[in-house]
Design a protein around this nucleic acid. Sequence first.
DNA 1: TCCTATCTGTCTAACATCCGACAATCTTTT
DNA 2: AAAAGATTGTCGGATGTTAGACAGATAGGA
Lengths: 229, 229
Amino acid sequence: MAEKSKLWYLENFNLFKGLNSEKLEHLNKITNMKDIGKNQPIYFAKEPSNSIFFLKKGRIKLTRTSNDGKEMILGLINPGELFGEMSIYEENERTDFALAMEPALICAINKEEFKKFITENTELNLKLTRLIGLRIKKYTERIEELVFKDAAQRIISFMIRLADDNGKQLGSDVFVKPFLKHQDIANLTACSRQTVNSVLTDLREKNIIDFDRRKLVIKDKDSLLKFIS
Amino acid sequence: MAEKSKLWYLENFNLFKGLNSEKLEHLNKITNMKDIGKNQPIYFAKEPSNSIFFLKKGRIKLTRTSNDGKEMILGLINPGELFGEMSIYEENERTDFALAMEPALICAINKEEFKKFITENTELNLKLTRLIGLRIKKYTERIEELVFKDAAQRIISFMIRLADDNGKQLGSDVFVKPFLKHQDIANLTACSRQTVNSVLTDLREKNIIDFDRRKLVIKDKDSLLKFIS
DNA sequence: TCCTATCTGTCTAACATCCGACAATCTTTT
DNA sequence: AAAAGATTGTCGGATGTTAGACAGATAGGA
């Protein structure tokens, strides 16, 4: 990878927008671009956490596994987003597991280097603080959803968020591509694969959504919103 | 309330330990002690968030309410702990609701004043950052629990945490006093009051715990731990 | 002190969701 | 192009949890 393009990448991460070229150059020196293959791990749980990451290309899922082998997905990471940032706050090892869902390009920064860089760039500190606030908000909302909503409502909420984050408006429809496999949706919404399937096919029969392995189309968002009232 | 005792209170909050008397005096000037009656609110959801709080005495529950009136408890606050601190991170209104479970004594600090105080005391900043990291960890563990564990396991995990936080070792038993009413335990563990009751009485029959309205006694922690394996 | 609220304990029926099973379809590898 | 593997679709039975109902116990206010 040419150094020039790496610099360009850095500049395009939300977090780094507005930094001057001197600072970007310094950031460039302490970062490391890396290609990750499909289904390859980026880090493991219980691994000492020395780095934080930015995603340039691909999709990452952050997961946790129960004692008896069940998987839950804590969150999905899209290009331009930071992940693994908990290593700034936790002393020891990571508690989750990051996996590339498709071929990905990531940018790694050493935790200590990044900490130092932050203290020298207080405007970054503010952005980071805001980001952490958003994370907490997201997690508490997730808890709320698990407590108050049933499986169908959780799946529908997930689709709406997915469409908001990754969808393209096309006429009156919203396209999301790629979609996720049912098992992943199940692991995100805390229900079984079969329940995901039956909810999705039911909504398709009602002409509210359409989907196949690779795409999701939301044809009638208003009806979806009614379900989660 | 005499000013002298208030200063003494401040000194005893974990977060402020180690501050010199000049800084404590300044803190004293920007804080406000307040008595709160049983079942009285401290702040409401959707209220502009101008203050953060420290709890000196009593117990606080942080709750959220669903559209159809069901309550969930996001967390309990014990004396010495900070709460409402999300107002530092979120711009707008609060998303939850704080209620005194028993007569309480709290200490309020204006958000902006506190922010200023932090920037002038960087060692505090570090402590606060660590605290936020712990909050995130706690929330993600809660999500994990909701996804992986059944109702009985969640209730048992809750009792163990309660005993760790508020229990007193007495011989081979751990006493927790006061206990919570079953409905509150239900709202903390995402299940119904009836389920809480049946799990508790079942454990009592097996001589693993004992309880009544005011206390919980853990008589056989090992057996409890086996349930959550 | 009595009276009223609230909380606990215990049923049973209804319900949501899971789980195993298996065929059909699509994807990847050889 | 064939074979192996992964994903989707669809059953029906098993299971955990809820919700309603109501009696008895306890706490708090008049």
